[in-house]
């Protein structure tokens, strides 16, 4: 067992237990805490895979932004302290069965995937973050000019170089629209009894 494998098993165990905790717990703030651990250890998985920029983005956007927003939402909508919404035993049994079934289907399908390239060097890391930035700014030379590997039957086809300027712009405009829309939806309004 290498250090990479040891770290993978530690992080994967934490991630899996936290994800199950999110699904199982009925207290909504505890679920948010489990989700925090799941997201943070997923960021650890990204660091392990060599995607440093992505791991840090996961931490700053999810943990520092989205999760705080979610807890804020819980606090604003809680009708009493420590909200609990219990779920019946029958519903639990059905969802557990469906979940296990879904997982086994996914696992069977996933294990049939042939790994794209068997000879990844052990110290392989992803391209540094400046290539991501260049691709987002429309430089198509940042994407590698390699042959596509991992196809069934082992054939190679040349891939074209692409850039991601248009998706980046669309996402930016999308975020602006979301900002305005969320502010419009969540603005302070009169409650029902004030209207009546």
């Amino acid at each position: 067992m290498t250090l990479h494998a040891a770290l993978f098993y530690i992080l994967a165990t934490v991630t899996a237990i936290s994800a199950i905790g999110v699904a199982v717990t009925s207290n909504i703030v505890r679920a948010a805490t489990w989700l925090l651990f799941a997201l943070a250890s997923t960021a650890g998985i990204y660091f392990l895979l060599g995607a440093d920029f992505l791991g840090a983005t996961q931490l700053i956007v999810y943990v520092g932004g989205t999760m705080i927003l979610v807890v804020f939402g819980v606090m604003l909508t809680a009708s009493g302290p420590f909200v609990n919404m219990k779920v019946g035993a029958a519903e639990w049994a059905i969802s557990l069965a469906v979940g296990l079934l879904l997982y086994s289907v996914l696992a069977i399908v996933l294990l049939q995937i042939e790994p794209p390239s068997r000879n990844i060097p052990p110290n392989h890391t992803l391209l540094p973050s400046k290539h991501i930035g260049a691709a987002l700014l429309g430089s198509s030379s940042s994407t590698p000019e390699a042959k596509v590997t991992g196809l069934r039957g082992g054939q190679f086809i040349p891939r074209t170089r692409v850039s991601y300027l248009l998706p980046f712009e669309i996402i930016s405009v999308h975020l602006l629209v979301v900002l305005i829309g969320a502010a419009y939806l969540a603005r302070a309004k009169r409650r029902r009894e004030d209207v009546a």
Partner: peptide, 23 residues
């Protein structure tokens, strides 16, 4: 992205888009 070096930019960029969309 890690296990198929041809697509390592794509994997990271799509993951970034997913994170932003999730937010």
């Amino acid at each position: 992205a890690h296990f198929n070096p041809t697509f390592d930019i794509e994997g990271q960029i799509f993951a970034l888009f997913v994170i932003v969309m999730a937010a």
